[in-house]
Nucleic acid binder design. Structure first.
Lengths: 350, 350
DNA sequence: CTGAAAGCGCTTACAG
DNA sequence: CTGAAAGCGCTTACAG
């Protein structure tokens, strides 16, 4: 293939350097450098000469050389479980927005919900000399050792959504407890009594928080908390399917489901459809994170909306502040953003 | 905020360098470098000493220094219209997969469908010394001058989906003509006669190809091609909404819509719902790109599926080959992947 | 087999 | 006001 691919090769088109400018002008590289940076010690004539030629030759400073000198790469790393996921990509949109406007580049990695891959990504990122990391951990991530090690190396970290509790790094989260509480209350008010909760891994703090909201609501309404109605799902369709089928074999069946992530919600939805269950007549459903398409699905899905773009922006702003002021452990630990509930037909008892 | 944010600052934790190892071992940096790279001219004893210490100190080579030396950054840039879009994020997933396994990093930019921002991104990327670019152009991009300039600078470019015809760079596309043809035929076979086509900007080649498939199908079935049923939409909800309302004011109304992108399809869907039109009874609808959630919307949407992960992988593989063999203009110009049609209720006349 | 030197592109303290 | 030198971390042709 390679041979056939070959037609004609790249010309030797090296970008213009300071040296090139210096040579053409018969002055030293130091002077060119200073002129370009607008140093006050340069004679106006010289400055103009340099700047004009630089513009003419379309000189742009080599950021790699700068990085080597400054020991800053102007790159921030982002690790998300899965980019092809509206929640993640929307957060990245927010990160990119701030980064772009602050002169940073965003390098993206996916953990694919695997702890191992997350660790590999982190060491890769570290060896790549990124200036900072924004991460939402995988469903398998039980501890934050890999994150703490990164921080110990002097690389600031900001966590969002799925955070590691014991890691001393700031976090951008949403009021998950309140969100889950609100959704569960809503289900109860609609007359549902046997509300199942399909959660993520038990050690994740999002899981704990949403679980708390869920159980608080039940308690407050004197509904017993039943273990059999709490499922911790893997991020694998076959697994969710099996767990759900098992759940629905209970007699009586749950009459409502609260799903704890976009992926879980979508998978649940698929399984319920496959099983021929009508929503909400046979079983109601509400989910965490409001993918915009949820308005149009059949039935439209009640969802807890998290402000993704804000999450991304806040995380990026925080990280860049930390990078630029050499702060590894800021005093502000947590930025908590509001969730809102979008009530739709999937939870509306007729 | 900054002052309050400040708690304690980073320790001076510079990563271990070759010099550090050399100093500790009392040998020269050259020897360390050679030992680390497994040069044959190094005595086994020395090699082992160096390698062991490097491991102990967790030495990782500084990629920035390597980049400066090699004039390669091992970074590939990706520009997409909008990352929070299933099509784009899934393609990026494929790119990332190959890049990750080939030692490249992926830096992502969004054009937000603006030509101006696309150009800005490209000059940023160029000045950042990326090794190559993968791009799907914005809806506003009429010509590929900015891309050609990049290629002239020696940076290989691969285009996907929304390509620039006159740019001499390889492209990864899907058989859009056949896809649109098939979808239109399907609509005709279902008994629809007044089929509208909501397309992207007229100068984009995807638009032309899909338009050709659409008109070919109509011609073949002796259905006149009506200008009033061809709409070129902006990527702006208000605009699509207005255009659609105007379209639906025709008498008779179109009885089917073929939407030319995920975003357009979703927006159309929303407007049709808002107008209280029943799908497919009042108007049928089919769309380009099958967002997985389309199976669940009401009604499930007939969609032309494009193999996103493959697109990303192919583009990345091609680009990396070009980078590593110094090829700017490969002989193979086009990789065309197959689309498949998923027929669902939105186009099924009862 | 090993080291000193030069160089990748840039900045800046030090001289003058 | 300007230049030569050193250095960021690495590699490698050149000596020995």
């Amino acid at each position: 293939m390679i041979k056939e691919l070959y037609l004609y090769s790249m010309q030797n088109l090296q970008p213009v350097t300071i040296k090139d400018i210096a040579r053409k002008l018969g002055i030293s590289a130091s002077t060119v450098s200073r002129a370009l940076r607008g140093s006050t010690e340069i004679k106006e004539d010289t400055r103009k000469l340099v700047v004009d030629l630089a513009k003419e030759l379309k000189y742009t400073p080599n950021p790699i050389a700068l990085s080597l000198k400054e020991k800053k790469s102007k790159v921030i790393g982002v690790i998300v479980p899965e980019i092809a996921n509206y929640f993640c990509s929307a957060v990245i949109g927010g990160i990119e927005d701030i980064a772009y406007n602050s002169g940073y580049h965003v390098v993206i990695f996916q953990s694919h919900e695997k702890y191992e891959r997350e660790v590999a990504n982190i060491s890769l990122l570290a060896s790549r000399r990124i200036d900072g990391l924004i991460i939402s951990v995988s469903n398998e991530t039980k501890d934050g050792k890999h994150l703490s090690e990164l921080i110990d190396k002097g690389i600031p970290v900001v966590m969002f959504d799925r955070i590691c509790e014991e890691t001393d790094a700031p976090r951008v989260v949403t009021d998950d407890t309140r969100g889950a509480y609100g959704a569960t209350c809503h289900l109860i008010e609609q007359g549902y009594q046997r509300i199942a909760h399909i959660a993520m891994a038990p050690y994740l703090s999002v899981t704990k928080n949403r679980m708390k909201g869920y159980t608080d609501a039940l308690k407050q309404h004197n509904i017993p908390i039943e273990k059999k109605w709490i499922v911790h799902a893997d991020f694998d369709f076959a697994h969710i399917r099996k767990a759900l089928i098992k759940l629905l074999r209970n007699n009586p069946k749950p009459d409502a489901i609260l799903a704890s992530s976009e992926r879980i919600a979508t998978d649940c939805f698929e399984v319920l459809k496959e099983m021929g269950l009508r929503i909400p007549e046979d079983i109601a459903m509400a989910g965490f994170f409001d993918n915009p398409v949820y308005r149009f699905i059949d039935p439209p899905l009640t969802a807890i909306h998290q402000p993704t773009f804000d999450i991304g922006q806040s995380a990026a702003r925080l990280l860049i502040t930390m990078i630029e002021h050499n702060i590894l452990h800021p005093q502000y630990k947590t930025i908590e953003l509001k969730t809102t509930m979008e009530i739709r037909a999937s939870t509306m008892k007729k």
